[in-house]
C-alpha cells in the first residue's frame, strides 16, 4: 500500500526545502534585532552616521527576508502534497500553530516590514523605530509558532485520539503552546539564530576593516554584534543543555544516538571526541567507537541532573531492560498490531450497527492505544536513527558553539580597545565565522530531525505511514525542480547581497 521509496523522496524533498529555508531564516531572526538596536541608538543620539549604518544593515536584511518567505511557503505546501496522511491524522493540532503563525505573526512582520523599508521619510522617527521592533518581534513570534508545531511532533501532548475519524484532536491548546520541548526548542533555536545574525554583521564588518573601507561603521557594528553574540552564545549553551535534558525524558533514543550510547549504564560518560564504528549494529558485540575520548559520569549528570544515575542506551530501548522498567520495541509492536486490528474491528462493527461488538473492540483498542504507531513498524531496529549522522552533527554543533563564545569575546575585547584593525588573522576568521555559524545551525536541525527517525510524530506515527499515496516519480521530479529553483534563488541572493556590500552604506 505504501511505497517506501516515496517516503525517502518525500523526506529528501522536505529536508532540502527545510535546509534551504534555514539558510535565510536565522539571518532574519538575528539581524532583525540588530537592526532594532542600531535604529534605537540612532533615535537616541540623532546622529546621521547611525541612521546610515541602520539603513545599510536593513537593506541586507530585506534582501534576505524575501527569499526566506519564498522557501517557507513551499514547506507548508509539502505537508499537503507529500504528507497528506500526516496532515489528515494530526491536522487539527498541527494546523493550529501554523495558522496562527500565518495570520498573527507573519502578517505583523509583513505589515511593519513595509513601514520599516519604505517609511523612512513618510512616518515619524519614533513610529519607524516602533515598526522595526515589530518586525523583529513578529519574525521571532513566527519562529515561536513554527517551533511549537515542531515541538509537538517531538513530544505530542494536549490531544486525544478519535477512533471514529482516526484523527488526533486537540484537547488542551495551552499544553501544546507551553510544552517544555517547544519552549526549549524556541529559546535554543532563536538564540542560535542571534549568533548567526551577529556573525553576519561581524563577517561583513571584518571584510570592510581588511579592505580599509567604512572603518568607523564597521567598528561600531562589531561592538554591538559581539555583545549580542556573546550573550546569545551563553544563553544558547544553557538552552541547549535544557534541550538535551528534555530529550532524556521525551526522546531517550535520540539522546542515546547522538551520544553514541549503545549499552545503558549508571554513571554514564560523554564521548567528547570520537570516531563512530560504521559496522556497529544494535545488539551486536562490536565496539561503538573506533576511537574515543570520554568524560566519565557527565552524561548521567546532564541527562538526569543526578550523578551516577542510569542513562538508557540504544540496546536497552530496542530490546528492553526489565530492571529499569523499559519495555522492548517488539512487545510494543505486538500491542500496536493488536490496536490496529481492534480499531478495524470497531469500525466494522460500527458500520454494521453492532453496538455491543463495537464497544468491546473499542475497549480492547484503548488498552493498546498508546502503542498504535508501533504496529506499523517492520522491525524493532527500525526505531534506531543513524548514530553516525546524529553523533557527528551534535558534536559539530557543540564544538562550534563553544568556540563561538571565545570568538565573540575576542571581538568584543579588541573592538572596545580599538585594536581590531591590526589583527588581520582574527578579521579573516571573522569573515569565515558566518559560514561556521551556518554549519553549526544546520547541524542542530540535523540532530533534531534525523534523531527522531523513524517517527513523523514521536511514538505515534512512523514516517512510512505519514506520506501521500502517490507515485515516486512526481516527488522525484519536484525534488530536482526545487533543487534548481532554490539554488537559483540562493545564487541570486548572494549576488545581490555581495553587490550591496561592495557598494557599502554610502550608496544608499
Amino acid at each position: 500500500m505504501f511505497d517506501l521509496q516515496m517516503v525517502d523522496w518525500a523526506r529528501a524533498q522536505f529536508a532540502l526545502t527545510a535546509m534551504y529555508h534555514w539558510l535565510f531564516v536565522p539571518l532574519t531572526l538575528g539581524l532583525s534585532f540588530l537592526c532594532a538596536f542600531f535604529e534605537t541608538i540612532y533615535v537616541r543620539t540623532g546622529r546621521e552616521e547611525w541612521k546610515n549604518l541602520t539603513r545599510f544593515w536593513m537593506t541586507l536584511f530585506g534582501i534576505n527576508f524575501a527569499i526566506g518567505v519564498a522557501t517557507g511557503i513551499i514547506l507548508e505546501f509539502e505537508f499537503g502534497t507529500n504528507w497528506s496522511n500526516y496532515s489528515w491524522m494530526v491536522g487539527d493540532i498541527f494546523g493550529a500553530p501554523l495558522a496562527i503563525e500565518g495570520i498573527v505573526a507573519f502578517f505583523l512582520e509583513a505589515t511593519f516590514f513595509a513601514v520599516m523599508f519604505f517609511g523612512w521619510d513618510r512616518v515619524s522617527k519614533n513610529f519607524h523605530l516602533f515598526s522595526t521592533w515589530m518586525v523583529a518581534i513578529g519574525s521571532n513570534l513566527s519562529a515561536l509558532w513554527i517551533l511549537v508545531a515542531n515541538g509537538w511532533m517531538q513530544y505530542p501532548i494536549g490531544m486525544a485520539f478519535n477512533p471514529d475519524t482516526v484523527r488526533f484532536e486537540m484537547e488542551n491548546f495551552w499544553a501544546v503552546l507551553f510544552s517544555p520541548v517547544a519552549l526549549a526548542k524556541f529559546t535554543h533555536t532563536t538564540s542560535s539564530s542571534f549568533i548567526v545574525g551577529s556573525f553576519f554583521v561581524i563577517a561583513v564588518s571584518s571584510w570592510y576593516l581588511l579592505k580599509g573601507r567604512h572603518i568607523e561603521m564597521a567598528k561600531k557594528s562589531i561592538i554591538v554584534a559581539s555583545v549580542f553574540g556573546l550573550l546569545s552564545a551563553t544563553y544558547a549553551a544553557w538552552t541547549g543543555d535544557e534541550s538535551a535534558y528534555s530529550n532524556a525524558s521525551t526522546q531517550p533514543m535520540k539522546l542515546a544516538a547522538y551520544e553514541g550510547l549503545y549499552d545503558g549504564e549508571k554513571n554514564a560518560g560523554i564521548v567528547a571526541l570520537g570516531v563512530v564504528n560504521p559496522a556497529k549494529q544494535p545488539g551486536d558485540q562490536q565496539q561503538p567507537f573506533l576511537f574515543e575520548i570520554k568524560i566519565p559520569g557527565l552524561l548521567s549528570l546532564l541527562a538526569n541532573r543526578e550523578l551516577g544515575s542510569f542513562v538508557p542506551g540504544i540496546n536497552d530501548l530496542v530490546y528492553g531492560n526489565e530492571q529499569e522498567g523499559i519495555t522492548s520495541v517488539a512487545a510494543r509492536m505486538e500491542k500496536g498490531r493488536e490496536a490496529i486490528s481492534d480499531l478495524a474491528a470497531y469500525k466494522t462493527a460500527k458500520r454494521a450497527g453492532d453496538a455491543t461488538a463495537a464497544e468491546i473492540s473499542l475497549a480492547r483498542f484503548n488498552t493498546n492505544r498508546d502503542s498504535l504507531g508501533y504496529g506499523y513498524l517492520e522491525s524493532p531496529e527500525q526505531t534506531v536513527p543513524s548514530v553516525a549522522i546524529t553523533f557527528y552533527a551534535f558534536h559539530i554543533m557543540v564544538f562550534f558553539g563553544t568556540f563561538f563564545l571565545l570568538l565573540f569575546l575576542l571581538f568584543l575585547i579588541f573592538s572596545v580597545k580599538d585594536t581590531l584593525a591590526g589583527k588581520r588573522g582574527l578579521l579573516m576568521l571573522g569573515v569565515g565565522s558566518f559560514f561556521l555559524a551556518m554549519i553549526a545551525s544546520q547541524s542542530g536541525w540535523v540532530v533534531a530531525e534525523v534523531g527522531r527517525q523513524p517517527w513523523a510524530i514521536q511514538g505515534l506515527l512512523p514516517v512510512n505511514v505519514a506520506t501521500t499515496d502517490i507515485g515516486t516519480g512526481s516527488v522525484q521530479a519536484t525534488f530536482f525542480m526545487f533543487l534548481a529553483v532554490f539554488t537559483l534563488l540562493l545564487a541570486a541572493e548572494i549576488k545581490i547581497m555581495l553587490k550591496q556590500i561592495k557598494i557599502g552604506p554610502e550608496g544608499l
Binding site: 529559546t187 561592538i223 580599538d418
Partner: peptide, 30 residues
C-alpha cells in the same frame, strides 16, 4: 523553568541592547 527560559529570552534582548550602548560609550563610539 518555563518562566525562567522565557524571562531569560526577553532579558537577553534588553541586556544586549544596554550592554552594547555601554560598550560603545566605553569605546567612545556611541
Amino acid at each position: 523553568m518555563t518562566a525562567l527560559l522565557l524571562g531569560g529570552w526577553v532579558a537577553l534582548i534588553f541586556v544586549s541592547y544596554r550592554l552594547s550602548v555601554s560598550m560603545l560609550k566605553k569605546a567612545g563610539k556611541f
